[in-house]
Nucleic acid binder design. Structure first.
Lengths: 119, 119
DNA sequence: TTATTATTTTAGCAGTTGCGCATATATTAA
DNA sequence: TTAATATATGCGCAACTGCTAAAATAATAA
């Protein structure tokens, strides 16, 4: 066991490996982004919403009806997905149609869904 | 606009599409699983832990040191990842070595990291 | 045995999240 | 104009999360 560097009080088992591994870590912003994107999918209702949008665009009240939540709740979920650029909106009359923003989201979502099915 | 079925008070725009889309939804358990798995990655410290374990196994105190959190916090994160079968543990003396559970996790994590980098 | 050490667990707390409810905004119809 | 409607937004609350601090476990050393 070796002493820690700096003022950190944590003792480490393998100082060299610890430092080498720390250097392989991407910058914090990457992990923040990663966590933000995953948190969008970390709610089953939002995951359902994305699933509904895989092959079509839908208005808020239809999304709410399909998923089984209030229109207010749907709207709030859609705002979160919109902020993370996972969906886009198109206004037609007094209705707002939502769709997936890009193939990016679609691909990641489908891959993850496969993983969940196999689990 | 058509009336809703059952006692639901939500009005829907396209009843047929709503019902058809609802039928394409996988069962709730799938979305629960999906959300659980994503929530594991929805924390930047847990994401860092997984990154550290991509190419090697590490003990708790080294993980804590690399990520920059307390050993208690690391242990709690590892318990979450263990519950979700994303990591496995191996005891050696009084130290516990953690490693990724399977290629499954590795693949999903790497793909997601790529997506985050591009964002 | 007792002391030390690596990890785990528990309790408590501040911060966050998802939802219901009420209200606000925007568009259309009368 | 007023009324109705689709969505958005602000507020409050219960539930959840991640952390620290302290205590508990488990394994080794003295």
């Amino acid at each position: 066991m070796s002493k820690p560097k700096d003022k950190c009080e944590i003792w480490v088992v393998d100082q060299d490996r610890v430092e080498a591994t720390r250097r392989t870590l991407p910058p914090d912003e990457i992990f923040t982004l990663l966590a933000e994107n995953f948190s969008a999918l970390a709610d089953s209702n939002r995951a359902k919403i994305l699933h509904c949008l895989l092959e079509q665009e839908l208005c808020v009240c239809d999304i709410a009806s399909i998923v089984g939540i209030s229109e207010s709740a749907a709207s709030q979920h859609l705002r979160i997905l919109r902020t993370l650029r996972m969906v886009t909106q198109r206004k037609q009359g007094r209705m707002m149609y939502y769709s997936l923003n890009d193939e990016h989201v679609k691909t990641l979502f489908k891959i993850s869904l496969e993983h969940a099915r196999q689990a």
